[in-house]
Amino acid sequence: MTALRAFLTAIARALLLLLAVSAMVFVATELLPGDAAGARASNGATVEQVAALRAETGQDRPAWQRYTAWLGSLATGRLGTSLVNDRPVADAISQRLPASTALVVLALAFAGPLILVIGCWAGAGSRTRGTRTAVVTGLAAVPQVVLAAVLSALFAGALGWLPPVSLLPPGGSPLESPHLLILPVLSVALPTVVFGAGLLAGAVADTVRRPHAVDSRLRGTPTVLFFARDVVPFLLTPLARVVAISAGGLIAAATVVETLFGYPGLGSLLVTSVSARDTPVVQAVAMAAAAVVLGGLLLADVIAVLADPRRAPRPKRRAPRYLGVQP
C-alpha cells in the first residue's frame, strides 16, 4: 500500500511539473522578440497587414487567454494547428516521432551499459578518482558537432564504411535501414555516455564507501563480483534517473545531428518553430520531451522502491532528488 500511495503521489507530482514546464516554455516563447505573425508575413508587409494576420490566427488575444485556450484544447487531446503554416501540430509531431524514438531508444540502449561501466571506473578508484573524473569531464566538453563531424569524416569519409547522410525513405521506418542509424546514434550516444558517467561517478564513490562494500573489499571479493553484487544494485536508481534526463535531452536537442545527417527528428522541428515563434509547435515538442523526462524519473522512483537491495521502505521526502547523488 505504501508503494501504491508513493506511486500515485509521484504521478500527481509529475503532472504538476508538466504543467509548470508548459507555463515556463510558454512564457519563454512570449519573451522572445517578435511573434508568429511577424515571421509569417513577408518582408514587405505593412504593419496593418501583419496585424490582420495576427487577428486571423488569434494571436491578438492576451497571453493568458492564449495559454488557457491551449491548455483547454490539450485537455481534450488536441495539439492545435501551426501559426505559421496552418497545419495540425499532431501531423508534424507524428511524422518525426518514429525517427526520434528510434534514435533515442537505440542511443540509450548503447549508452546505458557504458554509463555504468565508465561511471564505476571513474567513481571507484580511490586515489586516481580525481584524474578519472577529470578525463570524463574533459570528454564531456567536446561539442557534439565536433564529435559528429569527426565520426562522419572517419567512418563515412576515410573508411567509407557508412553513408555520410541518413535520409530515411519517405513514410518508412527508421529501422528499415539500420546502417543509416549508426552514425547519428553514435553521435548522440557518446556525449550521453560521458555526461551520464560523470554524474554516476558520484553515486559510485558513495556506494564503494558504504560499510558493506568496504567489508566486502576487505574480505578480498574479486573485482567483478564486487561490482556486480555490492555496487551495481545500488546504482540502478541513479542510473535510471540519468538515463531519463538524457532521454529528454536527446528528443529535443539532437538538432545538430539531425541537420548534419539529414535525419528528420523532433529537434530541428523545435528549433525551426522557436525561430518562427510558432508557440503551439514549440509547446508540443517541449511537452513531449518533458513527459519523457518525468516519465523516466517516475520509472526511476519505481525502480528505487522495487530494486532497493535492502528492500527497505522508501524514506519519506518532500522534494525529489533526481540524481540521487548524495553530497
Binding site: S42, N85, R87, A92, S268, L269, T272
Partner: peptide, 13 residues
C-alpha cells in the same frame, strides 16, 4: 528547405 518549415499552401508564406 527546412522540413519543419514545409508549406502546403502555394499562395501563402
Amino acid at each position: 528547405g527546412a522540413p519543419a518549415a514545409t508549406a502546403t499552401d502555394p499562395h501563402g508564406r
